[in-house]
Design a protein around this nucleic acid. Structure first.
Lengths: 221, 221
DNA sequence: ACATGTGAACTGCTTCACAGCG
DNA sequence: CGCTGTGAAGCAGTTCACATGT
């Protein structure tokens, strides 16, 4: 199949969320225009995105909510659960391990790993922290589909290598560095430092004219 | 000034991180080629990105690490700190409030807010959780530059509206919904559900051929 | 009549390739 | 001679506009 743009997949994920809301509200059909306004895009974009995978609408009518929901779930591969492991038992790893939304959306967290011997074996809510070195063996019994990396930037590449060697083929990285993985491994990076610096750039570019800026320029406030 | 592409700003942020590492390792000059390999891009891209803001290199030599670091900090608006408030005293908000990396990179968390009266007034590590309704007044005394939204999807738009009304002009949203803000407010969204679904799509597209897939198809494993 | 599905036009980011300069 | 800086070319994603089908 032809390569699908990343931006398209991201929007499909958004559409799915709104369809689920919409189904709850009772309506059985929805137009590309309505989906677009919810997802913050245009009706043409919605139709183009869907057209990559087929023709799901009825001309003059729109899309059947239940049917399109089901199609999107199929397209995104959400018909069964994907087993997630968290690697890095720190603050953020902890928050994610406890976050119920993942399981609700079909991504149950099945284990937590760390490379720090002092953490290994300790309890982490309902999880016993396992040694990252045992991931490969654990994976042979009960394969993990996705690894979430919440380790410090310094060790992120090393840990990624271990995760890849263990056979995991999808990684969500929270370390603020660009990691290098083999082609058969899919990686997404959430870089909060980068997002904040993007906001900094925007604030600075706008001239930061609001009254509050004074307290920074003149510390003698 | 001409509009700068979002992708450019994101890469500048990455370059800066590597320059900081590089400075620590002693070298005083760096080529676009070397920066590119670290940041996972091409030398031409590095030069194009920088050329948007000026000519910082020396032909035949490369870039002075200290000088380029300084320039990037200026460009990104990192010469002074930006005050951050976290709105939503739940699991993720908590992890972010405790995360030291923000302060280290110039984004000190100065307060935590929530709209749940049961949480307001309670301690959250070193923070007393404040009522979101008091944000506007607090802001008049000590303006927050950036709000990080870690509230449930259902209330995210409502909370965003309050944050905007309080005068905050930059928002980092962790709720998995598309939010609508006025033009003068800059928003970035980190949507973990979307990232995971992107990984799901990739795994599914690759056919998920590895041994582990069997245990899902045949529950009789 | 109405909303989809889609080729064509457009926009904007990336890559190329080389002139320019240290 | 080496590496930057940059127009020009190439490519990918978005928007337009209308033919198509119900």
């Amino acid at each position: 199949m032809k390569r699908v743009a990343d931006s398209t997949v991201r929007r499909l994920s958004l559409y799915l969320r709104y369809l689920e809301d919409f189904a709850a509200s009772g309506s059985s059909t929805i137009s590309s225009e309505e989906l677009a306004s919810r997802a913050g895009t245009t009706s043409a974009q919605v139709r183009k995105d869907l057209s990559v995978f087929g023709s799901f609408g009825k001309r003059g009518l729109g899309y059947d909510v239940a049917e399109l929901t089901q199609k999107l779930r199929e397209i995104l591969g959400l018909e069964h659960e994907w087993r997630v492991v968290i690697v890095g038992a720190g603050k953020i790893g902890g928050a994610l391990a406890l976050y119920r939304g993942f399981r609700q959306r079909g991504f149950p967290v099945v284990a937590v790993y760390d490379s720090d011997p002092r953490k290994v074996g300790s309890m982490f809510e309902s999880f016993v922290v396992r040694d990252i070195a045992s991931l490969a063996a654990d994976n042979r019994r009960e394969p993990a589909d996705i690894a979430i990396l919440t380790v410090p930037a310094e060790s992120a590449q090393e840990v990624l290598d271990q995760v890849v060697a263990a056979g995991v083929r999808a990684v969500l990285n929270f370390a603020p560095v660009q990691l290098h993985a083999p082609d058969h491994v899919t990686m997404k990076t959430v870089n909060m430092a980068m997002e904040l610096e993007g906001l900094s750039f925007a604030l600075k570019s706008l001239g930061n004219r609001e009254s509050g800026s004074a307290h920074r320029r003149a510390k003698t406030g």
